[in-house]
Design a protein around this nucleic acid. Sequence first.
DNA 1: TGAATTGTCT
DNA 2: AGACAAT
Length: 575
Amino acid sequence: MSNSANDQRVIIQTDIDFFYGQVEELENPALKSQPFGVQQKHIIVTCNYIARAKGVRKLQLLGDALKACPELFIVNGEDLARYRAASKGIFHLVRSLVTGQKVERLGLDELFIDVTDMMEAHLTELGWNGDPDSTTALEEVQTFRIPLNGQSFTYNPYNWIGFKIDSDGDRMSQSSQSQKRLSWQTIKLHAASHLAFYIRNQIKDRLGFTCSAGIATSKIFAKLAADVHKPNDQTLLCPDKYAAFLEPLHIRKIMGIGYKASRTLCKNLGLLKDEHQANEDDALDDVEEAAQEGEAWYLPELTVSYVHQHCTIQQFLKWFGDRQGPLLWDLIHGIDNSQVLPTPLIPSQISIEDSFRLCKTMADATARLHDLSIDFIQRLEVELRVKDEFVKYPTTLRLTTRNRGKNDDGTWRDSKGLRDTRISKSSRMPVDVFDISRSIPERADALVEQSLLPMLRNLVKEPFALTLLNIAAAHLSTKRPATSIQNLFAKGKSIEETSPTTTPPLQQPLKRKRSNEEVDYDDDTGFAPSDYESMVLLGDGDETWDTCSICGKAMFTWGMQAHRLYHEKETRNQE
DNA sequence: TGAATTGTCT
DNA sequence: AGACAAT
């Protein structure tokens, strides 16, 4: 029980219930009464709880899902635009409720909120002297003010809301026990549970989404707590229960321990054949076999307590190295000092990708690149353009491919086996991408011809077997890129030579050990984009609705930007 | 182990 | 540039 300042944090994690599904329900409420799933390619990525009751699972093959539930209604979820817009709306709403606090986005549907400062400011108002171990007796009605929006709620500091896991077990909220004295630490967490409840209600009332939430003193436990009472409820996990809570869990439940680390542990503990003993065919057979068992991939269940009993720190250092070893060791012991990292308003990287069974010709690849490029430039506009100006300019363009390897007999390796080997090339982003006087298809054309095709030729030789293409924009700068004239000059030269610094690269040795990508990469804090912020702060309720000026359809404001693009695409397709 | 992203750490 | 993590 180290009593470091880190243990005094208060972190709320929120997780929107079946996020894609709820976005679909909000646009089409008729969905709510029947089992339905959201499809991407050949899998059901998520489904509502009616479908889950009938055996449909997340990330299930479409065929299996229909087998389990033949009446399953299917919605296509390959266009992420509406989900991104909804996600942004939620993010901006929550930020506005906890102004000054750190809010980190994880994927589209989860948030970590570090409300430590807010809670301690509140305690101070109640008379706290800053000593974490002190106790007090308080009135049963206290007021918590939400800064800057004028709202407040009352709560009982002897009580919590939602579920609580502490030394007395998992209990529902009870009426006040009228204890005489409470530790301030407990009050802090109780109050945080009420704040989490307020936040969840705001998300529901203003945007229409239900979510689950967890409250704890670290990211790991806040997230684990949010998982305990799943749809539409919340759980406070008290520090005195961390150890007991962790023991029975499968290690994969711990954020930060992924497939590879998990497999390394299994192998070293003798729970899995290691690769020396098994030839490739045997390994593949194992995969097939385990996959048929319906198990999550093919690792055996390995619990935290098993690792506790069979591993030493020395082993972790040996298996995972000096950097990762101690981190992983801490994680399985419930120590997580990782900070909530505020997510900037503008992403640091934007990429789009498409996967497919097989692409073996340049002609095919070119066509796919062209389609992707249109979506890509559209994305850049949505994310980086405000009115008539880009507010950030990516300086790097990256093309990534995923190839199938060849077997000894020359056939293409199956999708099972060693997979996801991606290779990529980067180049300078051509400035014409930002030329808003030209149409998007025009710019996409140029991008393919000038940049992407040369890069692709560099990546693969003619008889290839592509299964994925990804286009990324990285290294965002606030500076306008060089004009096209300057760009012509720069063509074929190294990045250092084109950088605006006047330092001559003479003293650089010819053998580059790593091209220091000293591209103009200024890292300002974001920039208030679009209208989410104001939308979320103004009024109560009806201003979150909007009517499309083109088709008259009523919809949430957070969906308008994507909707407008939909009309643009439609008009273009009709030409 | 499916999809589409994004981020961190070598 | 790529491996690995997360959703």
